[in-house]
Amino acid sequence: MYEIRIHSRGGQGGVTAARLLAMAALHDGKYATACPFYGAERRGAPIVSFVRIDDKPIKVYSQIRQPDMVVVLDASVMDVVDVLHGLKKGGRIFINSAGKREFAGFECRNVDLTGIALRENLVVSGSPILNTPVLGALASMGIITADSAKKAIREMFSDERNVKAAEAAYKEMSA
């Protein structure tokens, strides 16, 4: 079982990212569950959501304590939340950031999802959309396939800019 914790701020689409990731894993022929942390979410406050992916049906409902991977949609939450908490030794980190970061003992990758969203004009109510381009980044890291990522995005959003942004993130990461 592969366990992923997604850090974001309320309103940034972290829960939708979890859902899209689960949908893509389903298209890959796997089992997946996605859930938000069960509490009172507020716009702007740091939140976490979880995704489990496995080849077998998933029977675990308790929260992920030792994720295999951490996804950070908003690097500013790292000032207030220990995003590495419980991350397995050798675990992977993805950060939405233009600058490369290093964490000893972990594999850390990054791409500027915010910049990609702005470039693709993927902006709603003044906020760049991160939850669709992040699927391209995760596909590049081999968590899901690129085809399934695109299929999942198209199931949820009719606006092709979402797919284009995911493709851009995939390309930048794979370059």
Partner: peptide
């Protein structure tokens, strides 16, 4: 069905 554990979890 269990509150949140099933009502809000996303599964296939």
């Amino acid at each position: 069905l269990d509150g949140f554990l099933l009502s809000h979890i996303m599964q296939p």
